[in-house]
């Protein structure tokens, strides 16, 4: 590995735009406006967080970008295509739960995206093993999901998302259900993978600390209707390691983002 390529850094200002959201809105059949008029350009190589309270539409926005939910109004393009219409390898998705198939081994779970492309198992072996190695689970390829801890399952899920070598990784509150020690460890793993593979990551979270630690831009969202409230740039602090968590800059950034999040809560009752 060339250390140059693996260094964490915020993307250049003039990096090409990978995702463009232009007045994107989502209204569900029951009348709920989940996302209203969302405008956002995400450049290649960004690590961006959608942060907000429950019901602010952050997951909905992510699923629209993935092409898993239709767009009610406005437009989204991913790499120049409408969502879900580009090359399928372009996107990796990590859900809130690990979402593994309990009947399949770790290997077969990670192999799934390649199998969907029609690849035979023997030809996919190298790629699957490489993906497993990148999350440190090489020796568990024959295990079943129930034999793994929550953190390990999540790492399998990340390996599966990366096995097709996507440019874009979408993560929907992936570590919300994990304990803090595991979450910190996985935060570092994701930062490392982001830098090593030159990924663009959209990370949905409701944790201020997680969003500030991980991202170079935090999109703070408000609820009812779901909308973008503020966008906070956080270009500094790279490479971000455990040390970054103890710096005054990190504390200051957390304060700024917390304040931005607080603003969104002013006009909603915080009792839910």
């Amino acid at each position: 590995m060339v250390s140059e390529a693996t260094a964490q850094k915020a993307p250049a200002e003039d990096a090409p735009v990978l995702i463009r959201m232009d007045g994107a809105s989502k209204q569900f059949a029951n009348g709920t406006v989940a996302v209203r008029d969302m405008n956002l350009d995400i450049r290649e190589g960004e690590f961006i967080s959608f942060l907000g309270p429950s019901g602010c539409g952050k997951s909905t926005a992510l699923k629209m970008i993935a092409g898993l939910l239709s767009i009610s109004a406005g437009e989204i393009t991913v790499n120049g295509h409408p969502p879900g219409k580009g090359r399928e390898q372009d996107i990796g998705f990590v859900f809130q739960e690990a979402t593994l198939m309990p009947w399949a081994t770790v290997f077969d779970n990670v192999f799934l995206p390649l199998r969907m492309k029609g690849m035979k198992k023997k030809y996919a072996r190298d790629e699957v093993e490489e993906a497993l190695a990148s999350v440190g689970l090489s020796s568990f390829s024959g295990a079943y999901p129930r034999q793994l801890s929550g953190g390990m399952k999540m790492r399998v899920s990340i390996a599966r998302a990366l096995v097709t070598k996507p440019k874009l990784l979408l993560m929907d509150e992936p570590f919300a259900a994990l304990d803090e020690i595991t979450r910190f460890k996985l935060n570092n793993d994701v930062l490392e993978l982001w830098a090593r593979h030159g990924l663009t990551v959209i990370f949905v979270t409701h944790s201020v600390f997680e969003s500030v630690y991980l991202s170079n831009r935090v999109v703070v969202m408000a609820a009812r209707p779901g909308r973008v409230s503020r966008v906070v740039d956080l270009p500094g602090g790279y490479p971000r390691t455990e040390h970054y968590r103890t710096t005054p800059e990190y504390a200051e950034n957390c304060r700024i983002v917390s304040a931005a999040l607080e603003e969104t809560m002013d006009n909603v009752d915080i009792d839910h």
């Binding site: 699923k63 399928e88 996107i91 998705f93 198939m101 199998r115």
Partner: peptide, 17 residues
């Protein structure tokens, strides 16, 4: 599982797959 269904949609599984 609904998330697994979404995953299969994401990777454009054929009806047979």
């Amino acid at each position: 599982d609904h998330n697994l269904r979404d995953l299969f949609t994401l990777y454009r599984a054929t009806p047979w797959q």
